[in-house]
Design a protein around this nucleic acid. Structure first.
Lengths: 114, 114
DNA sequence: ACGTTTTATCGTATATCGACGATAAACGAT
DNA sequence: ATCGTTTATCGTCGATATACGATAAAACGT
C-alpha cells in the first residue's frame, strides 16, 4: 500500500513546518485571520529579509497564499491546503499508531549517544 | 496563546518527518509491527550508512526507540511519541483551520517563482 | 581463534538552510 | 517628480543535511 499522497509531498509539507519561526508565522496568520504584511517581523525576532524567506518557503509549500503586487504584500493561510495536510498527516500518524507495537524497551537507552 | 507544546518541539518533530526516506522507514516499522534491523536497507534505496543516519535522526526526535547492543539492532516505533505528535500536530493544524480565512485570492499567482 | 554478518560511526563532499545586510522595485503621500 | 515605506531578491557566510565508502565493534557460527 502506501499513503494517499506520496511520501515526498508529505515530506515537503513537514519541512515547511520544521522551523519554529514558520510555525509562529502560521499561528500569527491564523490569529489575525486576515492578511498581514510586515507585522510578522514584529512577532518573530528576525530580520525582514529572513521573514520574507520563510514566507517564501511557506508559499512554495502551498500552506499560504499571497500576492506581492506592490509594497504592501498580502498573505494568508491556504485553508484547503492546511486541511489536506491535516488529513494526510493524521492518516500517516494514525497508521503508525495502529500498527506499531512497542516491542523494544521504551527506555530509549540508546539515546545520549555522542 | 501559544501552542500546548513549544513550537520548537513541534519543529523538531516536523523535521524528523521532512524526508521521504524517514517516512518510508516509519511506515516500514509500522507494517512489520516489530523491530527490524537491516531490512530497511532493502526497502529504501539508500546505503546502509545513510539508513543508519536516518534512524539516528528518528531516534533523536523520539519517534522510534531502539537498542544496538550487538550486531543485531532492534528498532520500533515509540507509539506514545507518535500519539503525542499526532495530537499536537492536529491541534496546531486545526487551530490554523479554524482561524484562517482565505482573504487573499487562492490563485497563488505569486508562485512559479523559480 | 577466526571469519561472517550486521550495524554504528568516521571522514568527506556536495547541497541546502538560516541568518543577515544591502539593494531594487512598487506604491502612497507630498 | 521626489521621498518614504514596505517587501522581495541578491550576495554572502556559517551551520546543517544528505549521501557515500571505509572502518570499527559486537555477536554468531565453524
Amino acid at each position: 500500500m502506501k499513503g494517499a499522497v506520496s511520501d515526498e509531498r508529505l515530506a515537503v509539507w513537514a519541512k515547511a513546518l520544521s522551523h519554529p519561526a514558520r510555525i509562529a508565522i502560521l499561528r500569527t496568520l491564523a490569529e489575525r485571520s486576515t492578511c498581514i504584511c510586515g507585522e510578522i517581523v514584529d512577532v518573530v525576532p528576525l530580520a525582514q529579509s529572513t521573514v520574507s524567506q520563510h514566507l517564501k518557503v511557506l508559499r512554495e509549500a502551498g500552506l499560504i497564499v499571497g500576492q506581492a503586487d506592490g509594497p504592501r504584500s498580502c498573505y494568508c493561510l491556504d485553508t484547503s491546503s492546511v486541511t489536506e495536510l491535516r488529513n494526510e498527516l493524521d492518516g500517516l500518524l494514525t497508521h503508525l499508531e495502529c500498527c506499531g507495537e512497542n516491542c523494544c524497551s521504551t527506555d530509549s537507552k540508546t539515546e545520549g549517544g555522542e
